[in-house]
Design a protein around this nucleic acid. Sequence first.
DNA 1: TTGATTTATTCAAAAAATTGAATATAATGT
DNA 2: ACATTATATTCAATTTTTTGAATAAATCAA
Lengths: 132, 132
Amino acid sequence: MKDDSLTRQARLFRTLMHPARLAILEALRNGEQCVCHLEALLGYRQAYVSQQLAVLRKAQLIIDRRDGLNVFYRITQPEILSLLDTARALVGGTECADVHTATEVDCLCPKCAREHMTCSTSVHQVDHRVAE
Amino acid sequence: MKDDSLTRQARLFRTLMHPARLAILEALRNGEQCVCHLEALLGYRQAYVSQQLAVLRKAQLIIDRRDGLNVFYRITQPEILSLLDTARALVGGTECADVHTATEVDCLCPKCAREHMTCSTSVHQVDHRVAE
DNA sequence: TTGATTTATTCAAAAAATTGAATATAATGT
DNA sequence: ACATTATATTCAATTTTTTGAATAAATCAA
């Protein structure tokens, strides 16, 4: 397989050429997230998220870390985000407005539970709050 | 057609996901070049170069300017080169070593002839120098 | 107009990406 | 061991990209 600089650059861009994968990277902008979180945040089916994560993982743009049942993904090199920033500037994007902030989602993974738990007493308690 | 920021970014990356197109952009790094020049520099068939130029042109990454028989292409926004630079840094590239400097090629277009003509008397004179 | 030169387009076959559906794997609790 | 939950992989149909071959279009000179 050819592997000169241009070929590797092309492969990198090839990995980034998909809106769902860009959305995932944006979701990981502020740190690692578990798959269920990405699923809820982006509104894709689980298998679909895993497929796209696999593409990003094989390209070594993200790396995974298992914690019990959950797998957390994070970006390997922050320069990847610079690439996205430059691209967004080029196409005249509206900041990161398209993707919700990674925390604004009702995911029940331990991490999200911890973050929601500002007043609750138990981590395992299901969220029974009524929107009012 | 969807046209949010992520989709537009993805389209940009899609345009950049090909080594030949990256090579063309690198060749245009130091200013406009005619098609015959790119052809000689990159060693691709003429039709192939035109095809890839068309892709870049439709994505508005380059713009063309006709001058007689020749068509000169140039990069529309210098930020595109930043994108390439960041990508190369990410994949651990060897600077721009893969693509020859755009002027080191025996193209007979008016521009190249002018550049070769440091001592010659005629623009139309073919280069008869012997490497010694 | 004819011919030469430069560049662009069209078409089709092959290769690769996309995506849904089904299924597999891994970790945990009972 | 079995069930449950979270995540991953495989497979196949569809769509898109790639690339060569042929041809068209534009410009200029005679």
